[in-house]
Design a protein around this nucleic acid. Structure first.
Lengths: 245, 245
DNA sequence: CGGACCGTTGATTCAGTTCAAGTCATGTGG
DNA sequence: CCACATGACTTGAACTGAATCAACGGTCCG
């Protein structure tokens, strides 16, 4: 995920107040003064190479991570080894919320490309949230938003057919790219067909076939990992009005 | 869900400190003094008849609800009318977390039987959480636990076969009944086959067939809504070791 | 440049859905 | 308090969407 800034500028963005993700991240709707205090909270950064784990299942929970650059997947594993992707995260989104409950992570977070995160030590976040009402409110909203997101995935997995799932997935990605100032009609998938399938409860062959099918129908153009949405309305229609029954 | 207390006693339990759900609810691990302050927070109660909505989709979010007696389902609806159950809640569990994100509820909460909830006004909860660290910590854990629960439902819907889903569902119910001091081997389902199916991404016929199949196998006894677990270990084994592949 | 991974496409199989018919339970109004 | 209607559940038979198995082409990376 290119930040579309020259490298020199990239070096300079060291603080939340200068981060172009500010409106996506925690310090939203806060006074300058409060943002300054949050900057102090957000200590160091961490860089990760593609396929590297930010944290693993069962590792102790200590911090949340705001994605500064790159993207991640979170995966959960069953005793018998079956694995499922529970989410894809991109810049400005928060990772680690699953660890608060038990003090141990229940998913692993893996970088889909070379990435960088801001480390937010959790005890310090809680302390600051007690002092800055706006931060508390924002944090609660982030937690609740994750609950809501997962509920819509449950809907997707529970009641949608393969085509609808893929359509919903593509539209969601597009919307998130657009929210970050990238094109919402042309983008590059960071994940494999298998990872998409795992997230959507489908096999990779079904993902591949369905994308091909969308292409035949003129809904999208697929070239490897590059996607272009050609008929967003019909794509949206797929979700709301299933073919039959 | 009978509280197993004579009616007279039931009248008397008016405060958190005397509520037998205390260890399941918000005031966990707090000093007596703090519990007293939380009692003040928890204003009135609300009684609901079977099938009555505690709140509906799109209704404004103002409060969380702790279930004092009875049980609920939460459902999300698609534009085309398709509906899915996203969770079943029983005594001591919190309802309404979905509303924090946008200020509007994204699910409806419907009583499965005559029920009663404690109303927790959200702005007051946030204010108190800023003052009482233990309450803040507990609240965050509750939010995170819901995120984790939904992730395991995603796993269930995404990668499990019908038998595994049902087995996981029954074991989860059993464990929650047991945590509340009821029998974990013999209990009554509060929801219909259709509601179970909706939650598990199955049709009601499949739920019915699978339960019958479990019975033939000697895993459970089913009589209408009454379930008895006869071989918990083999039931658990179903989840961890799928038949083939 | 070679090998591993990733993706596409086809043929076949199968788990779960759909359609259907009938039983049983519940509760409501006369 | 009974009668009847309605909703809940079960079971069977046929159907189907997605999985599985398989073979092959493309691409990326060391």
């Amino acid at each position: 995920m290119d930040l579309q800034l020259p490298p020199t500028l990239r070096q300079l963005r060291v603080a939340c107040s200068q981060c172009n993700l500010m409106e996506l991240c925690l310090p939203v709707g806060l006074s300058e003064e409060d943002v300054a205090r949050i900057e102090a909270l957000i200590g160091n950064r961490r860089k990760l190479k593609r396929h590297q784990a930010l944290y693993e299942v069962r590792s102790p929970f200590q911090a949340l991570y705001a994605i500064r650059a790159g993207s991640f997947k979170t995966t959960i594993v069953l005793e018998d080894g079956r694995e499922q992707v529970t989410g894809f995260q991109m810049t400005g989104e928060l990772l680690g919320l699953d660890g608060i409950s038990t003090g141990q992570h229940v998913v692993s977070a893996i970088a889909l490309e070379d990435s960088e995160v801001c480390v937010i030590e959790y005890t310090r976040l809680e302390a600051l949230a007690r002092e800055i009402q706006g931060l508390q409110a924002q944090f609660h909203k982030v937690l609740s938003r994750e609950i809501v997101r997962e509920q819509s995935v449950m809907m997707l997995l529970g009641t949608m057919r393969a085509e609808e799932r893929l359509a919903a997935f593509l539209l969601n990605l597009a919307q998130r790219f657009a929210a970050r100032g990238f094109s919402g009609t042309e983008f590059r998938l960071r994940m494999t067909r298998e990872e998409i399938g795992s997230y959507l409860g489908l096999k990779l062959e079904t993902v591949s076939r369905t994308l091909s099918h969308f292409q035949e129908e003129g809904l999208i153009e697929v070239q490897h990992k590059n996607i272009r949405l050609r008929d967003r309305e019909r794509l949206r229609g797929l979700i709301q009005a299933p073919l039959s029954h």
